[in-house]
């Protein structure tokens, strides 16, 4: 939701993430200005550029491309610092089928 976007100022490099409106898949947005399926394909914004980045990323929300844009702090890779976001990168940590 849009409320998530009002996070505290970034202290690490950030990428933006959201779910694609049509199919709900996790997508990533970096300095290239294009939403990507893989986080590896995007270049993080420096912390001080996060606010500008957010404004760009949210355009896609207004154009019905993505839902729920928010910033994710990343380390090298880029790899999200938070476990939850790493799960969004890798998918569920459990086998995706009944045993």
């Amino acid at each position: 939701m849009s409320t998530k976007a009002k996070a505290r100022p970034a202290t690490a490099p950030v990428v933006f993430t959201a779910n694609r409106l049509r199919d709900g898949r996790v997508v990533w947005f970096g300095a290239e200005g294009i939403w990507q399926d893989r986080i590896a394909a995007v270049t993080p914004f420096a912390p001080e550029a996060a606010e500008t980045g957010l404004a760009e990323a949210q355009q896609a929300e207004r154009q019905q491309q993505v839902v729920g844009v928010y910033a994710v702090e990343v380390g090298p890779g880029p790899t999200p610092l938070k476990f939850r976001e790493r799960l969004r990168v890798s998918g569920p940590s459990v086998a995706a089928e009944a045993a």
Partner: peptide, 21 residues
């Protein structure tokens, strides 16, 4: 808007979760 659509989709059982709907 998503804010308007959300309660409508929820009433049809559709959530937006971590990886997908």
């Amino acid at each position: 808007t998503e804010d308007e659509f959300k309660p409508l989709r929820l009433m049809n059982g559709l959530y937006l979760q971590l990886h997908a709907y």
